[in-house]
Design a protein around this nucleic acid. Structure first.
Lengths: 166, 166
DNA sequence: GCAAGAATAGTCAAACTTGACTATTCCGTG
DNA sequence: CACGGAATAGTCAAGTTTGACTATTCTTGC
């Protein structure tokens, strides 16, 4: 949850926005480095408002329905920096769901197993290709994308090794 | 959620157990490759029972309080294999919370930033050391541990590169 | 033989997440 | 200028997760 808050606060620190803008930006630019979903974002924004970390203003434009513009508050900025330091200093084992299946893969017959692993390999390759298609981002988002690519490639290299051993 | 179910079904396929045994085993042996927590496991076991994938039997031993022994059912085994195939064939971008902080790290002054990254590096090293301390597991759990180690090392190598660039 | 701590075996309220859904306005084309 | 699809802007019920808590039984040292 903290990392989700960090993301929203970070985006709002850069610029006050309404929900749609936020979600649109995340979907279009950050989908590969975060898993924050729209409904989650709205719920979290509401919680951040309750805690006074963001402020909401209603804005009417033309005769569109009024929309909520979220802006980070002073205490939000403080919290942002605190969260940033904590999360940046943090490292945890990468326990992605995918590891679970590996623990049981010998329960499948070799043929089937190899089949599944090949499918996995294809998907990994696709993700890597997608990442490389993204034009170099101006901001520090690059770091996240870079890390993502490094991890995916390491995963691929390992997977290929496993396949050879089968 | 699917990977959590997969884990429990997989463990029960190997052997019927009661909740404590399951959780104890996970904590002591799998903590580094899964994030399934005790309360989550109990809740999930109950849901699996409702869906008929596991069966519960009360067992009294000595005058200890009766405990619930969970066993996988026939349809549980089917579901297990299905889940296994799906998850094994799956690959997703590794969006760990840690990536989020990277997107904003330039918001910290260089000195502080380097400090945080060094702390992160230390923690990464610790996790890697811990992983290598684990005696080679007999089962396919090894694959998960191996992958984990590979990913952590890739993360470390990348992080060291970033630190050099600062 | 008893007190303290470990092991055993969970439970629960509160928080978090999300797929699916709603509703309005804008815009391009025929 | 009417209509359909995209863009805009969310909401909500249902499901999932977990930190903190409870309660009993064993076990070991003194």
């Amino acid at each position: 949850m903290d990392h989700h808050a960090l993301l929203l606060l970070g985006l709002l620190k850069n610029q006050a926005q309404h929900g749609y803008q936020l979600n649109d930006f995340i979907e279009k630019n950050l989908a590969r480095v975060t898993d924050l979903k729209k409904a989650t974002a709205y719920a979290l924004l509401e919680r951040l408002r309750e805690s006074g970390l963001v402020a909401v203003k209603l804005e009417q434009e033309g005769n569109r329905p009024p929309r909520k513009v979220y802006a980070i508050t002073q205490s939000g900025e403080t919290e942002f920096l605190e969260l940033l330091r904590t999360e940046l200093s943090h490292a945890e084992p990468i326990s992605s769901p995918e590891s679970t299946a590996l623990m049981f893969m010998t329960e499948l017959e070799p043929i089937e197993r190899i089949d599944c692993l090949n499918t996995r390999l294809e998907k990994l390759n696709q993700h890597i290709a997608n990442l490389e298609k993204i034009p170099t981002h101006k901001s520090a988002v690059n770091f996240a994308l870079e890390r993502q690519a490094v991890l995916l490639k390491a995963d691929r290299a390992w997977l290929m090794g496993v396949l050879e051993r089968q």
